[in-house]
Simulated scan of single mutants.
Amino acid sequence: MSITPVTDETFASEVVESDLPVVVDIWAAWCGPCKAIAPILDQLAVEYAGRVKIVKVDADANPDTVAAVGVTSIPTLGFYRAGKRVDALIGAHPKPAITAKIEELLA
């Protein structure tokens, strides 16, 4: 399973209306910590395929979504269940920390 790019226009359909729990990565091309966690998210998208959807929102290209979800620092990983953000991680975190949050999302 690959990571789905999400825009201001598709956020509601891809995240809020998703039947699966969703991890939303809000990132930017110039952000070093964002680049550091990208391979981890790629791995997790494969490991949790069919159970969790992982999407990316480019903060520079989608300011409406960034403002609407209250992100003030990137990278921010938002964890959504039934259309509501239930948790978040701000900054770069190691794979075990992200995996633990996904497991909580599935619990």
Rank of each mutant, 00 (worst) to 15 (best):
K101Q: 14
V23P: 03
V69H: 12
L44Y: 06
G91E: 06
W30Q: 00
A28L: 01
T99M: 10
H93K: 11
I74D: 05
T65G: 12
W30I: 10
T72P: 03
G78E: 12
P96I: 12
D25N: 15
S73I: 05
A82C: 03
V69E: 08
P33S: 04
P96A: 13
V23W: 03
V66W: 11
D64W: 04
A68S: 15
P94T: 00
C31L: 03
L77K: 03
T99C: 12
V23F: 05
A82S: 12
P39C: 05
T72K: 08
A68L: 12
V52L: 08
A29F: 01
V86F: 01
T72N: 14
V46H: 13
P75L: 10
P39V: 05
A92K: 02
Y80E: 10
P96R: 03
D87P: 01
V23T: 07
Q43H: 11
E47A: 15
R81H: 08
A97V: 15
T65I: 04
N62S: 12
I102W: 06
D60S: 11
P63D: 03
I40V: 15
V52W: 02
G78Q: 15
A100G: 14
V55D: 10
I90K: 00
P96M: 12
A49M: 07
K56Y: 11
D87C: 07
G32F: 07
P39K: 07
K84P: 00
K101A: 11
D25A: 09
I54Y: 04
V52P: 01
D42T: 13
T76W: 05
P75E: 13
K101L: 01
L89H: 03
A36C: 08
D64H: 14
T99R: 15
A100F: 02
P39W: 02
Y48R: 11
A49P: 00
G50H: 10
I98F: 13
V86Q: 05
G91R: 11
A49F: 00
W27T: 05
V71S: 06
V57G: 04
I102G: 08
V52A: 04
A36Y: 04
P96N: 12
P94W: 01
T99F: 03
P96W: 07
V23I: 08
A28W: 06
P96E: 14
A28Y: 00
I90D: 00
T76S: 11
A28H: 06
T65K: 07
D87T: 07
I54D: 13
Y80N: 12
H93I: 08
A49N: 10
A100E: 14
K56G: 14
Y48M: 05
R51N: 11
